[in-house]
Design a protein around this nucleic acid. Sequence first.
DNA 1: ATGGTTGAACCTCAA
Length: 266
Amino acid sequence: MPHALTLTLATWNVNSLRARLPNLLAWLDKNPVDMLLLQELKCTEDHFPRLELEERGYNLAISGQKTFNGVAICSKYPLEDVSRSLPGDASDMAARYIEAVVSLKDKALRVASVYVPNGQEVGSDKFAYKLAFLERLQTHWHQLLTYHEIAVLGGDFNVAPYPMDVYDPEKLDGSVCYHPEERTRMRALMHLGLMDAFRLKHPEAREYSWWDYRSGGYQRGHGMRIDHLLLSPEAADHLTDAAIDERPRGEEKPSDHAPVTATLEL
DNA sequence: ATGGTTGAACCTCAA
């Protein structure tokens, strides 16, 4: 059967949607992706710039929070069965996960936008929360993968899975976002059968998705690849392209993250 | 570099 539908996806941690709205809209005008996964909205749903995105054709599913966190799914196709929590800890109120089913013409796609906790400092309570959160992701997606759907789990995982995903693996080994325990849990999640779209298409590329604002991280090339689009096997079968668009990171008032993109021919 | 920057909201925290 010939390909009937080209679906473009992006994930982007914008580090405050309201502060980054000009950057985001300028990027969308050049890259009118079908599915946009956002993290670190840093606003409640009532402050979400709904009109600006709706007039660009997006349906919205939002999990907002004041000051911190906040995730969203923006889709040119209708969204159904929206879920705003990651199972496994009913006491966790942070807006870090949203999942929905996208109705395409004759098929469906499950998609989630996740903002994994940063962990702050190795050994801290926040680091333990991060590890527990990664385990919850693994448990939940282990279940979801039994459905054999076309599915995408995208977002800011705050983990660089392999040495080639950081600018200096020897120096950074054991530091937050590149600690062995985080890599172990990140890889356990991937080894359920979630394929890293960027790495599938670029097995050797030393490209990053995040650079620290401090110490001129971007200018020095001190980056990490911590934002990922993970594909179910059924989705990976349709992957035709993946990239990291570094350009927005070099522009005025940037997010510290760059958008990561993928294309599926369904 | 036990430095450094950014955003939101408060006079500091999270990243």
